[in-house]
Structures are given as C-alpha cells and as structure tokens.
Write a protein that binds this DNA or RNA. Structure first.
Lengths: 224, 224
DNA sequence: GCCATTGAATGACTGCAGTCATAAATGATA
DNA sequence: TATCATTTATGACTGCAGTCATTCAATGGC
C-alpha cells in the first residue's frame, strides 16, 4: 500500500518520474538552500524540504544524515566559489605566509557575511571532520603549503592543524556578535602566524596588511 | 486533572512532597549523572531522568534547556574537584606561565579520562559561553593571570581568549581518538605558549617538563 | 485564622526527526 | 523481452523533545 499512490495517478509522461529519479540529491540540496535562505534555518523542517523538492520524506535520509548535514555541501559550495576568486587575486603572491594569511582573512570575512554560514558556525555541533571539510578546507590547504615549503616552523603538524582550525572557528564564533569583525579577524591571523613561528613584528605586518578588493558574488542561487 | 494524582495517593508524611519541592534541581542533576554514567549518554531520555528523580517531566525544563544543558554543571563539578587538587600541587610555583601550562596539561588529561567529558567534547554543539564555563573556566583563569602579570605578551586579550579556548577544545576533540593523548596535549601547550609570546625554546621546555603526580579522584557520586 | 498572590511543578499534548518494511526503477544476463 | 539482482525511493509509523494550560503549595498581608 505504501510507495507512490499519488505519483502514479498521472503516469502520463513517465519521464517525470525518471527525472525525479536521477537527481533527488540535487533537488533536495537546492530546495533546502532556498528554504533556509528564505526563513530562519531552525524553522525549516525536513518535511518542508522534501515537499519542496518533490521527493518522499524518507529519501532525504538516503542522502543526508540531518539538517546540519545538508548544510555542509551548501556552504561548502559557497565557500568554494569565493575561494576561487580569492586565489585568483593572489596569483602573483609567492610568499606562502602571505597567501595563507590573506586568504584566511578574506574567507573569514566572507563566511561571516553569509546567513547560512553564520547559523552553521553558531550551531557547529558537528564532528571535527565536517568542520574540517566545510569550515577549514581552504585555510587548511594554504596552511599546509606554508608548512611544507618550510615557511612555517611547527613542532607537530597534526596537532598544529587541529589547533589552528579550532582557534579559527572559535574566533569566528565569537565574532558573530560583532558589527565589524574585521579587526578581530586580523588579530586572529596575527596569532596564527605567531603560532606558526614567525616573529612578532613580521606576524603583525602581514596580518594587518591592506586587503585586495574582491568583486561581490552574484546571488547564490545558480546551478552548475 | 493534571498535577499529582499518584503523588498524593500516599500523603502520609506530607513532608515528602515538601522535600521534593525544594530540591528538584539537585535531584534531577544526580539522577541525570547516575543514568548517564550507567549507559550511553545518547540513550538516556529526559523521561528516564525525571522518572528517576521522581519529578514531573515538565519540571526538567524549568531548570535545564536540554540534555546538553544538564551535563554542563555535572562535568563542571567534576572539573572543579580536579582543579582544586591541581592548584594545590602548584602552590609553590610562582611563574604564571608554568602554572597555566601545568594546569592545562593536567586538566586536559583528566578531562579526556572522563566518559561524560568525552561525550560532551564529541557533541559540543554548545554556545561559546557554555564551552567557556565548562571546558575552559580554569584554564582561562590561569591564562588571564599570565596576561595580567605581564608574563604573556598578547596583542588583543579578548581575541586571544577565544583563540586559545577554541584551539584547546578542538585539540582535545581530535585527541578523543587517541589511546594516549599525552603527547598531543603537550604539543598543544607548547603552541599556546608560543602564541602567548614565549620564545620557542622556553615554550618547548615548559610544555614538556615532567608533570607532578596527583592522587586519583574517588568515585564521583558524592553529594555536597 | 482567612484570603490573595505567586510561581514551582505537572503531564497531556503537539509536532518533528529518524526508521523500516514495502515497492518501483534500473541494470545485468541470456 | 523475460527473469533476477541491485539500487533507489517511499510514507506510514514510532518515540522523544519541548510546550503550555492547569493545579496547588507556600508565602505574606490583614
């Protein structure tokens, strides 16, 4: 008796079902993003998402574990788009310390500007791995480059990664309450550079250098 | 029709009701701790807690917001007991950097040894303030002492606090998977000292100095 | 001693997250 | 193009978190 009782009522095209088939995941993702951008994230229910995506309630759990879980790829894509721009604007820069620092400072600002990221940060009751994949993927990459090229001096690469990521996330978390988080972000960058072995003067100079301007991202509802 | 239908069946002493009255919060706390230490934290329901505490289901929400919320004072008390011992064993130490570092290293080890703390860390989807009050209260105190006495050199005290707390928590979080987290904890301590302005040699020396022994805590079911 | 006021305590109730038995679509084999 | 195996989808169902209208002990005024 379960399954599609209503869906087959109009088995006219049949391709409609096929279309649903192939990209349930993508449909859920875009429906979730739309709904969560419309209203408060908390009030969006799984049922609303699956209704909007025109898939069954259970289908959601085939692709995602929870509401948090569906946010990860959404904000990940947002971050990836910005990261591409940031990297572009840093094309000429050869110093790994400057690349990392500028990237982190810009990405932190961008992150704090997005309502979905803000909610995610405030509710980051997520395992380390999700944090890493979504929050710190880009910063981590640039940071490791600094280590691998010998620009940074760290006693324990593994611990250093967790250390810096945690510091980064918690500083952003605290900055959620601020109107202009720029100064705190830069102070954080300075501290990271210190931790990475740069002397205080150089850390301060790099962390407070002027930032390159980036063109704003167009409305984030576009599909690939 | 609600209220106590069963509770008044034996209105023998009447003082029993009075006793329930005054310390619902304490009863909930001890019942919650007992249940959560008995089985997996996840499987304990609010209903089970209120049943064990012999209070109504709704009473729970009068005192606590959630299951996470009830854990905060529980693990806070555990930490406070250990902190007292740690401070005692550091009575002779005058260097704020050594006090902070030793305290942090010991408390991290103790924290990682407690199942309730481990669960809390793994599920720390809690606002910064809870984290601060439970996770970092003692470390934060010692850290600020280092700043205030001029032993530490930090550009921004506020940011520094969030930075260090986040680094601390996330490093512990990552250490949950390790059999012996000691080495990682010490590496973390070294990084904190660097961030606080100590030169690399001194940071390493202090962070890897031998730890004082502490007598183990007796079974944590005692009431004050 | 009586009544009014307060706010702690209660548990039936609501709504959502997450599960699971069922079933449709797809693909492979021949 | 029939048959079986595998993958993907479904929605009724379960159980718990959290709410809220109601009850009642306690306290203070008179």
């Amino acid at each position: 008796m379960p399954a599609n009782s209503e869906a087959t009522t109009s088995s006219s095209t049949l391709s409609r079902v096929q279309r649903k088939r192939k990209n349930a995941r993508a449909r859920i993702l875009s429906a979730a993003e739309r709904l969560m951008r419309e209203g408060p994230v908390d009030t969006v229910t799984i049922q609303q998402i699956t209704d909007a995506a025109d898939v069954g309630h259970g289908t959601f759990y085939l692709h995602f574990k929870s509401k948090y879980d569906v946010l990860v790829p959404i904000i990940g894509r947002y971050a990836a788009q910005w990261d591409a721009r940031v990297q572009q604007s840093l094309a000429g820069e050869t110093d790994a310390a400057r690349v990392f620092t500028t990237s982190a400072r810009l990405m932190a600002r961008v992150t704090l500007a997005d309502p979905l990221w803000r909610w995610f940060l405030a509710h980051s009751g997520v395992p380390v791995e999700d944090m890493r994949s979504a929050v710190g993927a880009f910063s981590t990459r640039d940071f490791h480059r600094g280590i691998d090229t010998g620009r940074f001096d760290v006693p324990n690469k593994q611990v250093m990664s967790h250390f810096v990521l945690g510091a980064y996330v918690n500083t952003l978390l605290a900055s959620l309450a601020l109107d202009d988080p720029g100064a705190d972000i830069d102070a954080m960058a300075e501290l990271i550079l210190r931790t990475a072995g740069l002397d205080h003067a150089e850390a301060a100079a790099i962390a407070h250098a002027p930032l390159p301007k980036l063109a704003p991202l167009e409305p984030p509802g576009d599909e690939t």
